[in-house]
Deep mutational scan, measured.
Amino acid sequence: NSLAEAKVLANRELDKYGVSDYYKNLINNAKTVEGVKALIDEILA
């Protein structure tokens, strides 16, 4: 998966839960796919 794909999928996942734009910005600023995954795990914990 590319970083861009990971960000799109992460933001879709956040949308399902009604997560605020603050967290979407964190996702969009992530530098690695692993970073995106770690943020998602933390946000949805």
Rank of each mutant, 00 (worst) to 15 (best):
residue 21 D to L: 13
residue 9 L to A: 12
residue 10 A to E: 00
residue 42 E to F: 14
residue 3 L to R: 00
residue 15 D to G: 08
residue 30 A to F: 02
residue 7 K to Q: 06
residue 44 L to H: 07
residue 24 K to R: 15
residue 21 D to H: 10
residue 22 Y to D: 05
residue 2 S to L: 13
residue 32 T to P: 00
residue 39 L to P: 00
residue 35 G to D: 15
residue 23 Y to Q: 04
residue 8 V to I: 14
residue 21 D to T: 12
residue 42 E to Q: 12
residue 37 K to T: 07
residue 4 A to S: 11
residue 9 L to H: 07
residue 28 N to V: 06
residue 40 I to E: 02
residue 28 N to P: 01
residue 8 V to D: 11
residue 15 D to E: 12
residue 41 D to H: 09
residue 40 I to C: 04
residue 18 G to Y: 06
residue 44 L to Q: 05
residue 39 L to R: 02
residue 26 L to C: 05
residue 4 A to G: 06
residue 27 I to S: 00
residue 4 A to R: 10
residue 25 N to Q: 13
residue 36 V to Q: 00
residue 15 D to V: 09
residue 22 Y to H: 10
residue 19 V to P: 06
residue 45 A to I: 08
residue 24 K to C: 03
residue 40 I to W: 05
residue 36 V to R: 00
residue 27 I to F: 02
residue 4 A to Q: 12
residue 30 A to W: 01
residue 11 N to P: 01
residue 8 V to T: 10
residue 45 A to V: 08
residue 36 V to K: 00
residue 45 A to R: 14
residue 35 G to Q: 14
residue 7 K to G: 00
residue 32 T to H: 03
residue 36 V to G: 00
residue 34 E to C: 07
residue 7 K to L: 06
residue 24 K to I: 06
residue 34 E to Y: 07
residue 41 D to M: 15
residue 16 K to M: 07
residue 23 Y to V: 05
residue 33 V to L: 11
residue 26 L to I: 08
residue 28 N to Y: 12
residue 7 K to T: 02
residue 42 E to N: 10
residue 10 A to G: 04
residue 3 L to C: 03
residue 31 K to W: 09
residue 3 L to P: 01
residue 1 N to Q: 14
residue 33 V to C: 03
residue 2 S to M: 10
residue 25 N to F: 13
residue 39 L to C: 03
residue 41 D to Q: 14
residue 32 T to F: 02
residue 20 S to V: 04
residue 5 E to M: 14
residue 30 A to S: 06
residue 14 L to M: 08
residue 23 Y to R: 02
residue 15 D to T: 12
residue 41 D to T: 14
residue 13 E to I: 15
residue 43 I to Y: 09
residue 35 G to H: 14
residue 43 I to V: 07
residue 20 S to Y: 05
residue 39 L to T: 03
residue 43 I to D: 00
residue 12 R to T: 07
residue 8 V to N: 11
residue 15 D to H: 08
residue 44 L to M: 11
residue 37 K to V: 06
residue 23 Y to G: 02
residue 2 S to Q: 10
residue 30 A to N: 02
residue 32 T to N: 05
residue 25 N to H: 12
residue 2 S to W: 11
residue 10 A to N: 01
residue 16 K to E: 05
residue 36 V to D: 00
residue 31 K to R: 09
residue 28 N to R: 07
residue 1 N to C: 10
residue 43 I to K: 01
residue 25 N to S: 10
residue 40 I to D: 00
residue 12 R to D: 04
residue 20 S to A: 11
residue 9 L to G: 04
residue 19 V to L: 13
residue 19 V to M: 15
residue 36 V to A: 01
residue 43 I to M: 05
residue 14 L to P: 00
residue 44 L to D: 02
residue 13 E to C: 15
residue 24 K to T: 05
residue 19 V to Q: 06
residue 15 D to I: 09
residue 35 G to P: 00
residue 13 E to A: 11
residue 45 A to L: 13
residue 12 R to W: 12
residue 44 L to I: 10
residue 10 A to Y: 03
residue 44 L to C: 03
residue 24 K to E: 03
residue 29 N to F: 08
residue 18 G to M: 08
residue 31 K to Q: 14
residue 28 N to W: 15
residue 27 I to E: 00
residue 21 D to N: 12
